[in-house]
Design a protein around this nucleic acid. Sequence first.
DNA 1: GTGAAAGCGCTAACAT
DNA 2: ATGTTAGCGCTTTCAC
Lengths: 351, 351
Amino acid sequence: MSRTTIHDIAKELNTSPSTVSKALNNHPSISAATKELIKTTAVNLNYRQNRLASSLRSGRTNIIGIMIPSSDIGFFGGVVHGIEKIARSNGYNILLFQSNETGEYEVEGIETLLQTSVDGIIASIAKDTPNLDHFFDVKKRKVPLVLFDRVKDELNSPSVVVDDYKGAFMATEHLIQQGYMNIAHISGPQHIKIFNDRLCGYVDALKMNNLPVNDDLIQYGRNSIESGKFSAERLLGRSKDMDAIFAVEDFTALGALQYLKQAGVKMPEKMGMIGFGNESFSPYVTPSLSTIDQQPARMGEEAFTLFLEAMAKKANGSQNGEVEVAEEEPKKIVLDPVLIVRESSIRTPQG
Amino acid sequence: MSRTTIHDIAKELNTSPSTVSKALNNHPSISAATKELIKTTAVNLNYRQNRLASSLRSGRTNIIGIMIPSSDIGFFGGVVHGIEKIARSNGYNILLFQSNETGEYEVEGIETLLQTSVDGIIASIAKDTPNLDHFFDVKKRKVPLVLFDRVKDELNSPSVVVDDYKGAFMATEHLIQQGYMNIAHISGPQHIKIFNDRLCGYVDALKMNNLPVNDDLIQYGRNSIESGKFSAERLLGRSKDMDAIFAVEDFTALGALQYLKQAGVKMPEKMGMIGFGNESFSPYVTPSLSTIDQQPARMGEEAFTLFLEAMAKKANGSQNGEVEVAEEEPKKIVLDPVLIVRESSIRTPQG
DNA sequence: GTGAAAGCGCTAACAT
DNA sequence: ATGTTAGCGCTTTCAC
């Protein structure tokens, strides 16, 4: 009636549970013959390992915890996809938590993950996390912690992010190469690092190409379609020369696109446009929106790889007795963004 | 050094582990005073329950397994979001698996979920699953199984789907109410039930409104942007009267939209358009695409509620001794689709 | 190469 | 109201 255990198999074969356990785990000290025999019997009896018992005893769960703001956001869905895929191929499974950008849920979730004895945690930090105590707790418990996208340097953890500066630089330079000369930028709130990074990338690309940086062509928005519309209107009113816009993210770009279209500005002939983030709608708007891809799935894979490295390091560390190894600088992976060229930035040959 | 256990707390207070356990679990037989004392000490000693041990002993993990095709697909991301949210508020956590539409991964994942002793499984079946043995296995083990969206009646499990027929009916009737008279339909492969259901909804809406059903206005596509373009071209060539299209899903609608725009057909004045699925791009195309929403988050919540009901039933069942209760018809929830009206289907007052 | 024994940390039946 | 005891199913020394 109830689940078959290794005792049942042992009884069936007149051997011992420990032998069965070893055989099923391919322990070298068991002869090939008995391994074969035990494995067949296991199948016949419909045996299925109880991972709870195994984990309790061995101290490993082969489960890693994921903490993200929301799986409803395309980017995070993509990252989770990447993590789950590579994790599975390495024998790990995924316990998924969403903070919904709420510190409270994040704290709660991390607590639960620790209770579940996950082998590691991969997280992207919620916007409104009041403090990082819960993450420091993770480190205190020696549970490998890897951060991605929303990282915090104070945590001194391995992390993977995309190079925002470089992405902005690439976007701007692409517009320059297409022959646009007066390129505006709609930025976001400057206290958020990535937006400032993107602004710097834009400025440096102009400088590096010997183009003037014009403060009138820089607008600070609030990352929304509405804000994009408003910013585009302002820019258009301020400069007669502007012939392209690099927007800090795709929603802003979309708003700008919509405003300009409605204002009768021909794109991409009279006005080039590029966004950032490769949102799912960007291929389908008119004109289709050029943008910078952040490689979510790749980011997930890299994060998991960092986790594996941390696990390996941990295993080595405990071999070296109790000697507290001086904590080395955690590995920080910076992914290259990918330029996605679509209609909105391809200037057709001038007549 | 290592984790605090209930033994540590017991030793500290000169009491027994079982008392500590009961106190922490709010067992009624423990006095308020000792509960208080034990709980404070637990906090002081930085105690954290070992869920592995607890689950092994109690037979409950408070973890439910989720099996979806991919968290990279917007719809499933939304469902997972809904499940995780309500699950958490009920004390459950989510072990997430992706089949990537592959039967092999699905089988593997279900196996792992059973090994992990999840309390239940919520699944949406992969397209190419060769057979349903792995799901029957779940039922054999008496693990509650709930299906959503991609369901199979043979499994005789509680399930939640959206009413495709009704959604198609609503979409078509909306076009009729907007004054469109010659409404075409681009359908999908008819061996897939939902596409046939949508076709039926379209046909019945016409009939119910005393409009003729014209075979020339029905095109069978393959659910893609390209297919949408092609189908729209065919329809346009075949009928001079056609003034609206209901497309079987949003990508098809988008393709049709793009073709018609390029062909100079004014939308929504000369041609109305509505899709199905509320894909993330649909608000942002031009004209913005009216569509039918499938309420992914809601679907996840309902699925979880069905799981809770199955759990309750299971608990009751075992109370009634070993009497095998005749299996009653599983509850099948059919969600109402939601009509999302956007620009593409609002006929402006005729001049 | 195999088996005996201990125990991971917890819960729950059964005393007291 | 509290404590004793047993054991969930497995892994892992250690002995043979």
